[in-house]
Design a protein around this nucleic acid. Structure first.
Lengths: 205, 205
DNA sequence: CCATGATCTAGACGCAGTCTACTTTACCGG
DNA sequence: CCGGTAAAGTAGACTGCGTCTAGATCATGG
C-alpha cells in the first residue's frame, strides 16, 4: 500500500514522461473524485503523475487549463450516458424523459465533475474542446425536443424548460438542498415523464 | 483615492475594533460582489476591516464561518426580494409566478452570492442561522404552492418541480450555459406562468 | 481596583499558483 | 551520422492563502 501522492520512484525514471498530458488528466480526474473541485491542484497532479510541480504547466498553461480539459470530458461522459439511456427507446416522450433521467443520473453519480462543468470562474469557457463538448450536450436535448414536438414555433423555449427542470433538479440534489430519493435517475425520469404528459406546449408564447 | 485593501490608518486606531463581526461581514459582502466567491479571503476581509489578518478568526472560527454567515444573509435577501414581489398580488397563479421570477431575479442580480448559497463544500451547512434562512426559502415556495393547489396529495412533488425549474433556469443563466434575456426576472415570471397554466398537477403520481 | 476573559496583534508553518533559469532529450535537416 | 533547435521537465523563488500559537491590550464585573 504505497502512498499515491508521492512520485512513483526517484530512481531510474526517464527524464521525459512520454505521455504527461494524459497522466495529468488521469490524476486530475482521480483527485476530482476523491477531493472535489478544490482538491484538484497542479502540484498534486504533478505528484501523482510522478513529475516535478512545474511540469503540468507546459501542457496546460495553468490550472484553468487542466480543469477545462476535464470539464470537457465531463460533458462528453454525460452525453455518452444520455445516448446509452436512449438505446432501444423509440417513443419520443420516453426518449426525452430518458435524456433527463440520464442528465440527473450522471450528476448524482459524479457530483464533483458535474459541479465543475458549470463553474465558470474555474474554466476557460472559450476553449474549443470545451465549447464543442458543452455545445453537444445542449444539442442532444434539442434534437429530442424536436423529435417530440416537431417543428414547433416555441421548440427552443420548450427545450429550455425541460433543460431547466433537469438541471435544477440535479443541482438541488447535489447541493444538498433537496434530499435525494433512492434512485435519482428513475425519479428524474418519472418527473420528466409527468411534465411531458401534463404540459401542453401550445400554452407557450 | 486611498486603496481600500489597506488598513485605514496605522495611527490612532483603537486596539479593539468595537464591531468587527459586522465589519468583516461587510467586507466579505463587498469582496463577494467584486471578486466572486474565491475572492473572499480572511486576510482581505481583515485588511478591509482595518485589523490584523488573524482577527476575523476570533469571531467566525475560520473562512467557512464567514462564508456561511453571508450565505445565510443571501437566503434572507432572496426571501425579502420574493416577498416584495408578492406585495399587492392576490391571484395564486401570479403569486407563484412572481416567487419564481424573484428567485431568478435575485440570482442574476447577485450571481456570486447566489452561487455561494449552494456551494456546500465552502459552507457549514449545519449552522443554525444558515439552516433557518435556507429553510425559510423553501417554505415560502411551499406556502404559495399550497395557496395555488390547496391540500393536493402531490403538493410537495409539485413544489419540487416549480423549484427545479426556477433553480435550473437561474443556474443555467449564471453559469453562462444559456444566454440571458433582456429582463431575466420577467422572462422567468413568464416561463413560470406558462408552466402553471399549461401543466395539470393531477398528472402527478 | 484588580483579575479574568474577550479581543486583537504578530509571527510562523505548510501548501498553493506561477514565473524564471537551467537541464535533458527528441528530432530533423544536412 | 551529426549537430542544432525546440520541446519537455527540473528546481528554486516569490507571493498569497488558511490556520495555529504566544503574547499584548482592554473592558467589565466583583
Amino acid at each position: 500500500m504505497e502512498s499515491v501522492d508521492q512520485p512513483r520512484t526517484t530512481s531510474s525514471r526517464p527524464y521525459h514522461h512520454g505521455d504527461l498530458r494524459n497522466a495529468v488528466i488521469e490524476a486530475a480526474l482521480s483527485l476530482l473524485k476523491e477531493r472535489g473541485v478544490e482538491g484538484v491542484t497542479l502540484r498534486q497532479c504533478a505528484a501523482r503523475a510522478g513529475v516535478s510541480h512545474g511540469a503540468p504547466g507546459h501542457h496546460f498553461g495553468d490550472l484553468k487549463g487542466v480543469l477545462t480539459a476535464i470539464a470537457a470530458l465531463g460533458f462528453e461522459g454525460q452525453v455518452a450516458h444520455q445516448e446509452a439511456a436512449l438505446a432501444g427507446r423509440t417513443d419520443p416522450v420516453e426518449r426525452l424523459a430518458a435524456i433527463g433521467g440520464a442528465y440527473v443520473g450522471f450528476a448524482v453519480t459524479h457530483p464533483a465533475h458535474f459541479s465543475l462543468m458549470f463553474r465558470r470562474d474555474r474554466l476557460r469557457t472559450d476553449d474549443p474542446a470545451f465549447v464543442a463538448a458543452s455545445g453537444r450536450a445542449g444539442e442532444i436535448l434539442l434534437e429530442e425536443t424536436y423529435r417530440y414536438i416537431g417543428d414547433h414555433p416555441h421548440a427552443r423555449q420548450f427545450r429550455d424548460m425541460v433543460w431547466s427542470i433537469v438541471h435544477g433538479y440535479a443541482s438541488l440534489l447535489i447541493s444538498g438542498q433537496k434530499k435525494p430519493p433512492e434512485n435519482p435517475e428513475a425519479a428524474a425520469f418519472q418527473m420528466q415523464l409527468a411534465f411531458l404528459r401534463g404540459f401542453d406546449p401550445d400554452t407557450l408564447g
